[in-house]
């Protein structure tokens, strides 16, 4: 009975879709989704179909992401990208520290978040002033800086886009763009 084809035919499972393809290991394990501490409703981060996701969390770690059967848009389905999004969260190569590359340097160096944030603020203020334009050649009000630009937003939350636009506009930076123009 160890031979799979025999098991398939003799075991009442001629199509090989049932008991004959179940190993002891299979019966001994339980799906991560049933043992998870909680399932959190989310939305797929890739394309704009907006499929519903259920994010399974155990010990404050994401253990699996599956389609949300309750979503009227996707009815539980995810395409390969949405299905792979657990790897997006738990990727080995994911960067979790700040890196800095100095002028002319050949490689990165690690930097702490606080220092890096302060350095960005310094540069933001300096470039803002360097390229500030009060008025145009006819003396009309411009009140802007051409020294700072930004690209990105289509993968971000509405609330994030809102704060980005609000802050940059108040700082006089106008060159704010995202994927919608590409």
């Amino acid at each position: 009975m160890g031979w799979p084809v025999l098991r398939q035919f003799l075991g009442g499972d001629p199509l090989g879709r049932s008991s004959s393809v179940v190993s002891r290991k299979t019966t001994e394990i339980t799906p991560r989704t049933t043992t998870a501490d909680r399932a959190v409703q989310s939305v797929c981060p890739y394309c704009a179909v907006g499929c519903g996701q259920k994010v399974f969390v155990s010990d404050e770690k994401v253990v699996q992401i599956e389609g949300d059967p309750e979503s009227p848009i996707s009815r539980g389905r995810l395409c390969p990208k949405g299905s792979a999004s657990e790897q997006l969260v738990n990727s080995d190569t994911r960067q979790t520290t700040v890196l800095y590359r100095a002028p002319r340097a050949k490689d990165w160096q690690e930097m702490d978040l606080e220092t890096a944030t302060e350095m960005v603020v310094d540069r933001f203020l300096e470039s803002r002033r360097n390229k500030w334009q009060d008025v145009d050649e006819h003396g009309r009000h411009l009140g802007r800086t051409m020294g700072i630009a930004s690209l990105g937003g289509a993968t971000l939350d509405n609330e994030e886009n809102y704060l980005i636009k609000k802050l940059f506009t108040a700082a006089g930076a106008i060159q704010i763009e995202n994927q919608a123009r590409i």
Partner: peptide, 22 residues
């Protein structure tokens, strides 16, 4: 219109675009 990013519609409505305000 079939758009390609999770919130590309949102980033047009609440725009990170040079020519628009929300």
């Amino acid at each position: 219109a079939l758009r390609g990013h999770a919130s590309i519609q949102g980033s047009t409505d609440i725009p990170t675009l040079f020519n628009l305000l929300p």
